[in-house]
Design a protein around this nucleic acid. Structure first.
Lengths: 243, 243
DNA sequence: CTGTAGCAACTTGTATACTAGAATACATGT
DNA sequence: ACATGTATTCTAGTATACAAGTTGCTACAG
């Protein structure tokens, strides 16, 4: 325990900035699942994924570990791995998480929003509008994410975003089961505008109400989609496997 | 994509029940950190941990991945790994998460609590009382965890517990920097009793208020401890590294 | 034709070997 | 004495090899 050579103990290390293979694989796989390219119940194999991506099993395993913690996959030791069936209870809990947290953070954001921040928000809304008219759905989803993220950041509770993002992943997964159409995007943009308006006007109560209205609308469409794709759902008893 | 031998696609696999080495290591390391046995800033090494536990690096790596996702450690590629310094902003965010979520879930629990559930809660309180008079602090912490967990479960939002548990980990870490004394435990038990009373009496408003009161008291002691151990904290700019 | 035992091919879990990078120790020059 | 270049030794990331276990097909017995 004495004079080992290693790096300094109390000083900080260089920077983290880790663009590792494992992280790339993780983000790749996460998108496949959240965007519905890989459907619930679909079988996965570490070997097969590794081969198809041209890497070894090790980074794929790391990605699987992280996906498992987000409850996006289920790993059955020595048997196999599947994309998590959609547990309706888990989806509802995710909605609960999102609504509970984002309604509070957006109110905080409305209390402390600066002019620059308000401008950044309006800028994102403008981009969303353009996606809407151009029908660029994928980009819209990205800007949607960015806006919600920025709102949490403005609230000063940045650590909350990780939770919201995970919950959002579960919800988006359901949403992507169904083709989205332009009217749907239009409505979302309008609701976003209402939220941003309140935030920019420093109206916490209004912002919270607008956010709640928005999230509940999103959830309604999710429930509708759930009924149309009952085969991807499981009744109950699904292990969450958070260990 | 045709007739591979593998297991059935739509049927479920056996059961998960995975008591793997990696999980054991993870829980072991998590306790070391949360309970303060390993202090913030302390250096870790995959090799050294693997040797000391008599396993290979692989399960240790898996544990490290999970600890990293809980923000309990920081991994600097090719340099080293340290127990996360305590970021006061992150601690505050954890408190925010806990208070926001548990105050809502306890209100839900108060709405739907059955007689059996109420009895289970009272039983846990009784055990806590015994720990209090016997001075068995470690057991008290366990029952504390169990009670909060049960309350979330009763609320019907079981997926919320994972979030609360992670946040609680961050908070407990700070709490364990300071020796806890019996009067502190006594006050906690009293506050717990107040919460459970409201839940058993089906009083959502009261339960929420009691929970908020309780959590804020806990947080106050955390802030006091933070001031006494400023050396374990870092000022700002700490990478959360959630990637 | 039916049921069962066993084998073969797959799965994930673990251990080991190798790579590239980072940080200290030390020797060497000034 | 001090600065600097080099070498050693650590680090985590990745690749591969091996072990333990499960699944489903198949061949064989009834």
């Amino acid at each position: 325990m004495a004079s080992r050579p290693g790096p300094a103990f109390d000083k900080h290390f260089v920077r983290s900035a880790a663009p590792s293979t494992a992280t790339d694989v993780f983000q790749h796989l996460r998108e496949k699942i959240v965007r519905g390219e890989w459907v619930p119940g679909q079988r996965l194999s570490e070997n097969e994924v590794a081969r198809s991506l041209g890497v070894s099993r090790t980074p794929v395993r790391e990605a699987f570990i992280r996906l498992r913690q987000e409850a996006l996959i289920r790993v059955y030791p020595q048997s196999g791995t599947v994309v998590s069936p959609i547990d309706l209870a888990e989806v509802e809990d995710s909605q609960f998480l999102r609504e509970t947290l984002e309604c509070r953070t957006v109110a905080l954001a409305a209390e402390s929003c600066t002019a620059e921040q308000a401008e950044a928000l309006c800028d994102l809304i403008e981009r969303q509008r353009r996606c809407c008219v151009a029908g660029r759905e994928a980009d819209f989803v990205a800007f949607d994410d960015e806006m919600h993220h920025l709102l949490v950041t403005i609230s000063g509770r940045k650590a909350v975003w990780r939770v919201v993002r995970d919950a959002k992943g579960q919800l988006d997964r359901v949403r992507h089961l169904s083709l989205q159409n332009v009217p749907w995007i239009e409505r979302n943009v309008r609701e976003h505008e209402a939220i941003i308006d309140c935030v920019a006007r420093r109206d916490p109560k209004g912002a919270e109400a607008a956010m709640r209205h928005h999230l509940r609308n999103v959830f309604q469409s999710i429930e509708r989609i759930a009924q149309e794709h009952a085969d991807f759902f499981e009744s109950a008893g699904g292990r969450t496997e958070t260990a």
